[in-house]
Structures are given as structure tokens and as C-alpha cells.
Amino acid sequence: MNNSLLIVLIASGIAYGTPLLYASLGELLAERSGVLNLGVEGMMLVGAVMGFWTVQRVHTSAGIALTAAILVAALAGAVMASIHAFLVITLRASQIVSGLALTIFAGAAGLSSYLGNDLNLSDAPARHTFHAVFPASMQRWSVIGPIVFGQDILVYVSWACVIAIWLYLSRTRPGLNVRSVGESPAAADTMGINVTSYRYAHTLAGGAFAGVAGASITLAITPQWVNGITGGAGWIAIALVIFAFWRPELCLVGAYFFGALQALAPQLQARHISLGPTVLWTNALPYVMTIVVLVVVSSGTARSRLGAPAALGNAYAREER
């Protein structure tokens, strides 16, 4: 039962979907404050390399090393995001071009690769990795065993994050404020809400989440450092925010769906099942499906408009005439 393709796909979809979930939650926070950050891929890569470096170089117990790695990854992601924040919030540069610049700066041919090489990280597997939290006996329970109890701590924390962000946005005062900043910065400003600090805070938080997302790849899914290891996950995460109508609970559903698609290729190969004519088809499936879902979502124009923060992508300046 637990070895059936469906159960395995769901369980590994959750695992593979976790980096997507963290990254899309972060992007959601930034976008809800009105800042589009296309640099997710780059921030993830820097988070991935710095998290991995921490685990390799900090010689303590696994628990401390991994905790430190996650914190370092979050910090690294936030530092990357701060460049974007400065350019688009303070200097009011184009959010699209700045985000692309961040991807180039930090991405597979940039800082992450520089650090990976310079710190000699590609020669060994991770010294510590995240493992399933619950005992093996529980993981053997039918259906819920592998799906619910077979996951590592990052998965459970991500569930907490989804609930926390959902509550934050819908039930708290800062949540109300950030939504107003993303919808109508002029209105927020008039009511004495500091648009600049809210945007900075959420863009940086978004970067931290992207950093964690990257580290969750190098420390849980494929515990090693390979240049460009994210393979476009950052872009899928940005698309996920659109699919999710800017709602955290739907980010979770979308992330696991795309996680399952990524898990599909290796699972099918392991079972010698061929889906469609070629291996090309299976490999390209996550990307093609992302495009297909994007088209479906954006065709229902009215609905997607209902989700997007009205001021997304717009710089705000009070004294411009």
C-alpha cells in the first residue's frame, strides 16, 4: 500500500514541494507589500550554498549545525533581497529589471557559483542532513505514515509558517497594514503607515524565506552542492504565487502539486514506467505544466485580478509632482 505510486508521489511531492513552498511564501510576503522580486532563483542559490557551507564548516552536533545553517541561509537570502529592496524602494528602479539583475548577480553563474567554488563545496556530500522526525514504526502506518510522519522538520515548520502567515495577513494589525501598503500605498501613507519600512521588512523576509528554501534543497533533498542546483525552482515559486491568488494556503497546495511533478520523473524511471513517448516529456513536465496552469489562471482574467495586490510593481513616492 505505502509503496503504491500514488502514496509515494504524495509523500515525495511534499518533500520536493517544500523548497517551492518556502520560496513562494516569501515571494507572497514581498508581493503583498507591493514589491515584485524576480530574484528568487538567485536568493535561493545563495541560501543553498551558504546553508551547505555552514553544515560543512561548523563542527558541532547535527542539530546545532543544521539550525545554524538554516539561520545563515535565511540571513544570506535577506542580504540578497536587501539589494533589490534598496534599488526598487529607495531608488525606485524598475522592479522587473532589478529582480532579473539579482538573479544574474546571485545565480548559477554569479555569487552562488563564486562562493561554491571558492569555499570548495562541491567535493563532498553534506555532513548533516534533515531526516524524518518520527520513528520508523510510525512511518510504516498505512497511508498517513509516509505522508504525514515520514517528513523532516522543515516540512512541519513550513506547515506552521503557512498557518502563521495566513493568520498574520488576515487577523493582525501589521498584516492589515501590509495589505494596505500593497493595495494602496497612498492610502496607507496618509494613515501614517510607513510604506518604506513595511516594504523593506517584507522584501527582506521574502529573501529570508527564499534562502531557507535553497538550504532545504542542499540539506534535505539532494544533500550536496552542485552549481545551479535549484534548476528553475525559484521561477516556479514565483508562478505559484500567481496560481495561489496571493493566498498562503493555496501556495501549499500548488507547491505540493509541483513537487509531485518533479518527483514523477525519478519515480517513473525507478519503476520502468514510461509516461508518454520520451524521457524529454517527463523531464519537461514541471516547466510545461507551470506554463499551462499560468495560462489557465490568467485566462480567467477577472479572477486573477482579484488576487493581485493593486500596487504590485509600482514604486511609491510621496513628493513627486
Binding site: 532589478s98 539583475a101 546571485a106 548559477a108 554569479g110 555569487l111 563564486y114 571558492d118
Partner: peptide
């Protein structure tokens, strides 16, 4: 020679 340096420089140029 540090790999990725060129990407770093390009990124900063763009910024």
C-alpha cells in the same frame, strides 16, 4: 581564478 566572478561583476554592473 574564482569562478562566478564574472557573473558577480555583471550583476553589480546591472545594479
Amino acid at each position: 581564478f574564482p569562478a562566478g566572478l564574472v557573473g558577480v561583476i555583471q550583476g553589480i554592473i546591472l545594479f
